[in-house]
Design a protein around this nucleic acid. Structure first.
Length: 822
RNA sequence: GCCGAAGUGGCGGAAUUGGCAGACGCACUUGACUCAAAAUCAAGCGGUCUCACGGCUGUGUGGGUUCGAGUCCCACCUUCGGCACCA
């Protein structure tokens, strides 16, 4: 046979798979498994991160098919988005054209990698037959009161010319371009994800197959705080200020109240008073600051007195009301009670403005003096100066004081979340239009379902700067109202692309349904996704939104899944020379060049071998060559014996070396099976296969080619079968070479022979005081007493323990014996 | 500041339940083959002392538990990630 030339065999098998629609989902088996890799944005070319995630998914998919599962392994395109629009402006091509060309190019690359996708289920989010259902889902949210429009201070990216959701702001910058985000008051569409905060938090406990860090990140993002809401009446006014606190036990320590600059009462309290000018100036100064400066911990806490007072309901005390720069309108009620003795921020603020400090919580072992405090005492303790609650512990007082407030209608228990509603409207063109009309008579009207999709017009000219051309597209803009037949205008905002990608895994289960986004029975056969694989950068964004969508679909009766992704693998990044691959650093390696030079099988093998999937991986050109060498080594081995093994010959009895080889092969098979199935440790699975190959070479040398045909044949077959998920093209070729006509990928995963795993003899270690002092080979399963006798009769051990007293002997069967001497 | 993860040869990494640290691969060294090189095959490869047999030492640092610790406990250092005036 010829040498191993991947550029010949890989396209050959790819053609075979494609022509036979080889990876069409088989829905027959009762054992079903949904393997899904996050679908890509069609940016143009695949990068190494793509290659890694697809390689991981493909090994699993191929392995599970061999294990008898019906596997759903689809692929699609997260195809709406800003880069298409920006590229379009820059290169004068239509975003659709740019997107579809990229899809074609990337699909070609995926096929060149030999990934086993069922292409009949491909979804493309920018295609009308997909976004029709994206819009349908928007209407579902709308009908259920989960989509609403409101005017609010929102995050604005001046570079992208659009608003962003909270989740899409990273360190004060736009997640996509990094430009500093500013605040604007705009009327926008939101999804009521906060209605689902509690369930999104609770159900994290169902996700034992997720990495803990992702669950923790979501938990932090949802940010549940339990406490109380307290109403402080304003002195001489018929107003109450609502305050949220997690420390109702400190309520008797309140010495002032602080409002956020945006708080609606600020103007009301100060207008027409001598404080008006100063407060106005302060409010303006504070509002001008951007969010990063405003929420920075280094920010000096400043405030100004409003001239007004309010009354602490529990003790009737009058306390001053201030406006402060450290209080955020967006959290709680935009007003906080100042308890300087027990909150560090309040403490600093109070010292700066000479506000009184009153100790109401004290540690058990010391007495705190308000005047001599150098920092707030924030821990829990025993209540003092708190009327009838004196002597209570903090935790008891939290409940008692809250109950007391509730009884007098001064407040109530309250849970607050950090999570905000999800802002989904975008002021850009390349997205799914929001299916809403504005009628002069009827107001806001949802587009009737039968009129979907609201087509995104293609005859547009994009403008420098990115203002949406929809705002001026008369054909799109003007329409008639479905309820009164009068003139109506279309909503010109499009949806956040995360909306489109929050339900695509459902669509794969029923990709061509033109009556519904998906039929429930089809979705129920597959969702939740058994194994989802993707980058950690989606730990909050996409994964939280998808969980939300699934719960809404569940509530509406479209799925019986409460969570979309049963198990999640967050794969690490692919770096080079310790740094992220980037054009500016000139350290980019592309999948194309690897395929061209070594073949897809080598690239896949290396990317799985170099590190466990969840860890970052450092790309090494030398390492790739090592994998290439390994595959050539396998090729030569099979080539050398393939013909010989097919010749008839008499059966020979297995000798010691034969048995040893069989033991190695079956041990390897067991390890590889467990490594893939239970631990996703593809790196150790591959190294085990390498060890087996080394052992087969060793056997070959030992036998000087007089190999036991049966045992060699079994070894090579198992080797090719277990390598096939990793190197699918080579697997096909070698399987054929071994005389089989059916595809290797249709074979059952081999079963290991328990008998072959057994050994007659084991080498055990003899330790003296925990240090290795000798070894001996004894028959397997020798009992402790016999082991001890054997060890103590060992010449070397005898001399070492001669003048010592044996205190104890610890034996671990088949492993070691430790003699403790003094 | 809070939460989390991780620190093992020259490098990537392995050690699954507390039981031989360094599997496998890369790099390097040596031998075989070759006129030679490449490729391939074989062998060696933590540090240190020793001609050698062998000894000592070694998994970020310091303690502890244990017959025995990379693995468990406590404290600390470093790196990375997330959150961060959240009341």
């Amino acid at each position: 046979m010829a040498d191993y030339i991947p550029s010949v065999i890989e396209p050959k098998w790819q053609k075979f798979w494609e022509e036979n629609n080889f990876y069409r989902t088989n829905e027959k088996s009762k054992k079903k498994f949904y393997v899904l890799e996050m679908f890509p944005y069609p940016s143009g070319r695949l990068h190494m991160g793509h290659m890694r995630v697809y390689s991981i998914g493909d090994v699993l998919a191929r392995f599970l098919r061999m294990r008898g599962f019906s596997v759903l392994h689809p692929m699609g395109w997260d195809a709406f988005g800003l880069p298409a629009e920006n590229a379009a402006i820059k290169n004068q091509v239509h975003p659709a054209e740019w997107t579809y060309e990229n899809i074609e190019a990337m699909k070609k690359q995926q096929k060149a990698l030999g990934i086993s996708y069922d292409w009949e289920r491909e979804v493309t989010t920018c295609a009308p037959d997909y976004y029709k259902w994206t819009q349908w889902l928007f209407l579902l949210f709308y009908k259920r009161g989960l989509a609403y429009k409101k005017k609010a201070a929102v995050n604005w990216c001046p570079n992208c010319n659009t608003v962003l959701a909270n989740e899409q702001v990273e360190e004060g910058g736009c997640w996509r371009c990094g430009t500093e985000v500013t605040s604007r008051d705009l009327e926008q569409w939101f999804l009521r994800i906060t209605d689902y905060a509690e369930r999104l938090l609770d159900d994290l406990s169902l996700l034992s197959g997720w990495p803990e860090r992702v669950r923790i990140m979501q938990e932090n993002w949802i940010g549940k705080s339990e406490g109380a809401e307290v109403l402080f009446p304003v002195k001489n006014k018929d107003e109450k200020i609502t305050v949220f606190t997690t420390r109702p036990d400190t309520l008797y320590g309140v010495t002032y109240l602080v409002l956020a600059a945006e708080h609606p009462l600020v103007a009301e309290l100060t207008n027409g008073t001598k404080y008006e000018a100063e407060v106005k100036a302060f409010v303006e100064k504070t509002r001008k600051l951007n969010d990063i400066a405003r929420t920075s911990t280094e920010m000096e806490k400043e405030g100004v007195f409003t001239g007004a007072y309010c009354i602490n309901p529990v003790n009737g005390e009058e306390v001053p009301i201030l406006v402060g720069n450290y209080v955020l309108m967006g959290y709680g009620s935009g007003a906080v009670m100042g308890v300087p003795a027990h909150d560090q921020r309040d403490f600093e603020f109070a010292r700066k403005y000479n506000l009184p400090v009153r100790v109401v919580i004290t540690p058990a072992d010391q007495e705190l003096q308000a005047d001599s405090l150098t920092e707030a005492y924030v821990d829990e303790g025993i209540l003092i100066n708190s009327a009838q609650f004196n002597g209570y512990s903090s935790s008891a007082a939290k409940n008692e004081i809250t109950a007391y407030l509730e009884k007098h209608n001064w407040g109530k228990p309250k849970i607050t979340y950090r999570l905000r509603d999800w802002l989904i409207s975008r002021q850009r063109y390349w997205g799914a239009p929001i299916p809403i009309l504005y009628c002069d008579h009827c107001g806001t009207v949802p587009v009737p379902e039968e009129q979907l999709p609201v087509m995104l017009p293609e005859d547009i000219a994009l403008k420098e700067g990115g203002q949406s051309p929809l705002k001026e597209h008369q054909g799109f803009l003007l329409t008639t109202c479905p309820s009164c037949g009068g003139r109506a205008r279309r909503e010109t905002d499009t949806m956040d692309t995360f909306f489109c990608s929050s339900w695509y895994y459902f669509r794969y289960t029923d990709a061509h349904n033109d009556q519904l986004p998906f039929a429930r029975e089809k979705a129920d056969a597959w969702v939740p996704v058994d194994q989802y694989i993707g980058g950690i950068e989606h730990a909050i964004l996409h994964l939280l939104y998808s969980r939300f969508f699934t719960k809404v679909l569940y509530d509406a009766g479209y799925t019986s899944a409460v969570e979309p992704f049963k198990r999640l693998l967050a794969q690490g990044m692919v770096n080079k020379d310790g740094a992220k691959m980037s054009k500016s650093k000139g350290n980019v390696v592309s999948p194309d060049e690897i395929i061209e030079k070594y073949g897809a099988d080598t690239g896949r093998l290396f990317i799985l071998f170099a590190a466990p999937p969840e860890k970052d991986l450092d790309w090494s050109d030398r390492g790739v060559e090592g994998c290439y060498r390994f595959l050539k080594r396998v090729w030569r081995l099979v080539d050398r014996y393939a013909d010989l093994l097919r010749l008839p010959g008499e059966q020979t009895k297995a000798d010691k070396a034969d048995q040893k080889l069989r033991h190695v092969v079956h041990t390897t098979l067991k390890k590889v099976t467990e490594d893939i199935e239970e631990r996703f440790n593809f790196n150790t699975a591959i190294s085990a296969i390498m060890e087996a190959v080394n052992a087969i070479y060793g056997y070959m040398h030992e036998k000087e080619d007089a190999v036991n045909k049966e045992i060699m044949a079994e070894a090579l077959e198992i080797l090719v079968l277990i390598l096939a998920p990793f190197a699918p093209h080579l697997g096909e070729e070698l399987w054929q070479r071994l005389g089989h006509s059916e595809s290797v990928h249709l074979q059952s995963w081999p079963k290991f022979d328990e008998a072959a795993l057994q050994v007659n003899e084991v080498e055990i270690v003899i330790q003296i005081n925990g240090k290795v002092r000798g070894r001996m080979t004894i028959s397997a399963d020798t009992d402790a007493q016999a082991m001890e006798q054997l060890a103590l009769s060992d010449e070397k051990i005898t001399s070492l323990v001669a003048d010592k007293q044996i205190v104890r002997v610890i034996t671990v069967p088949n492993k070691l014996i430790n003699i403790v001497v003094r």
